[in-house]
Write a protein that binds this DNA or RNA. Structure first.
Length: 476
RNA sequence: GGCGGGGUGGCCAAGUGGUAAGGCAGAGGACUGCAAAUCCUUUAUCACGGGUUCGAUUCCCGUCCCCGCCUCCA
């Protein structure tokens, strides 16, 4: 494949050359399970799901690891508020996360490691760092000695000496240097704690990803991905921990997605302008929601507003409408050879170019445009047109569903279930309507059409008679 | 203050040193009893000022504006 990705570390687009021929190793920073997922999480999930699907579609065998941070200050805080064990919170929101990701059409990771399941790996890494003089223990805490790692700041483009050294540094009294960060935190009363060489305590946030990524993907794996807001300090620290301890390269390529904004602001829990992912899926549907996520290049900010979601809904309807018509007109027809090649090539080239999803979607629009032109001939029974329409429909499902996860075929399948149930009833009403039309009693005919529309059945009058389907009209 | 990303038609959004994809919306037309769906036609000199160049929206400098990170965060 000839995929090019923008790499945050080198700040340039680089050809993707896997560590191991034919395979790709992918670590995607997962959630801290302390609350429901929001549409910002959804963007990261969809962007990197696209990356994975594109890699697989290109023939690579992908190993996708995505962690769950199941021990952390906020989990403890929430547990305290609800008067339950932190593990209850972590389990609840891990399950909710996985359920929502499933609803979003995100392929599940091959390995979903839990922080609390990797304490020994983390402690081993910390021990190595201490032995090398790159970390130090103070009263049960262990800190990373930032200035001992000369490449610190490379990922986020900072000079260590330029870093703001705020007055309110946590644990300032025990740190050698305000820049140092915690690898291990000594237990406080009432908090979950695990035994360690430095006393009971729990891991710092960053250490888990260093330990788990290396364990499940090895040293120098291919792609580490996450939100742009994780670049500093999280990913910077992950690199420092791993590379200080082991030398070499932690991850070969760093891919980051841009933030979701609400109006002119970033969406974030601290501002309180958060839209739940589950609600968004329920309101707009997976396909339109994913189209919205894919409407901008993955590194640029993306603004949430209902007009844009509405646009995405319209686009989704255009695609499903063509697919529905194409399947009817060319059901079971042997697809023609290469009519879709041009679109497939354009689509692939777009994604190869740093996952240029907007251009990939544009190639789908062009495919659908060609298909719609051929549709009348196909519906008349023209054999060539039917074969071409069949090929375009196949390509649309392959690219739109398999690679972009737009749930085109799924939407039609859902509708088909309803149609099977409603069929007899609708057919009878349509007969009455045809009679009314023949009698030029258009008021009666329109009344039936309105009635059906209210029940979720769309009627279209075609040259060869009425046609109907379960759903709402496009653009409604 | 440090670092980074942006300002493209009414809206969204690609892109290139040789006068700018695609979508949404709008307008007109075809089709229709009316619709729906679909098709056709139609709307931009790319924030501003300099510079480099035969030629810049695309390269350089400056200005203005927006946004993100620098603290938990996808």
């Amino acid at each position: 494949m000839s995929l090019v990705l923008y790499d945050t570390l080198t700040r340039q687009e680089r050809s993707f050359v896997p560590r191991e021929e034919g395979k790709a190793s992918l670590y995607i920073c997962g959630p801290t399970v302390q609350g429901d997922a929001h549409i910002g999480h959804g963007r990261a999930a969809v962007v990197f799901d696209l990356l994975r699907r594109h890699l697989e579609w290109s023939g690579l065998e992908v190993t996708h690891v995505s962690n769950v941070t199941d021990i952390d200050d906020k989990i403890i805080l929430r547990a305290r508020r609800e008067r339950v064990d932190p593990a209850v919170i972590a389990t609840r929101y891990t399950r909710a996360w996985n359920r929502t990701m499933d609803a979003l059409g995100v392929l599940p990771p091959h390995v979903q490691p839990y922080a609390t399941g990797h304490l020994l790996e983390m402690q081993a890494l910390i021990t190595t760092l201490i032995e090398q003089g790159k970390a130090y223990a103070v009263d049960g805490d262990v800190f990373f000695r930032v200035r001992s790692f000369e490449r610190y700041g490379r990922l986020s483009g900072r000079q260590v000496d330029d870093m703001q050294q705020g007055e309110d540094v946590v644990d300032a009294d025990r740190k050698e240097d305000p820049l140092d960060f915690a690898l291990w935190k000594a237990a406080k009363p009432g908090e979950p704690a695990w035994p360690s060489p430095w006393g009971d305590g729990r891991p710092g946030w960053h250490i888990e990803c260093s330990a788990m990524a290396a364990k499940h993907l090895g040293h120098g794996f291919d792609i580490h991905a996450g939100g742009l807001d994780l670049v500093f300090p999280h990913h910077e620290n992950e690199i420092a921990q791993h590379e200080a301890a082991h030398g070499g390269v932690f991850a070969r390529t760093w891919v980051h997605n841009g933030m979701v904004r609400m109006g002119e602001e970033k969406m974030s829990k601290s501002i309180g302008n958060v839209v739940s992912l589950e609600d968004a899926i329920a309101t707009y549907g997976v396909g339109p929601l994913r189209l919205w996520y894919l409407s901008a290049q993955h590194r640029t900010p993306l603004t949430f507003d209902t007009d844009r979601l509405h646009d995405a809904t319209t686009v989704h309807a255009r695609f499903t409408t063509f697919l529905r018509s194409a399947r009817r007109a060319a059901d079971g027809v042997e697809p023609a050879g290469d009519i879709a090649t041009r679109h497939r090539d354009a689509f692939r080239a777009a994604l190869d170019d740093d996952l240029n999803a907007p251009v990939a979607v544009a190639s789908l629009h062009e495919l659908v445009g060609v298909g719609n032109e051929l549709l009348p001939a196909a519906e008349r029974g023209d054999a060539d047109a039917r074969a071409q329409v069949a090929a375009l429909a196949d390509a649309l499902e392959e690219l739109g569903d398999r690679v972009l996860g737009l749930d085109l075929g799924g939407s039609l399948a859902d509708a088909a279930g309803l149609e099977a149930q409603l069929g007899a009833l609708v057919e009878q009403l349509l007969e009455q309507r045809q009679q009314a039309r023949a009698d030029r009693d258009f008021a009666a005919a329109d009344a039936i059409r309105d009635q059906l529309a209210a029940a979720g059945v769309v009627v279209e009058d075609r040259p060869d008679g009425p046609r109907w389907y379960a759903g709402t009209p496009a653009g409604a």
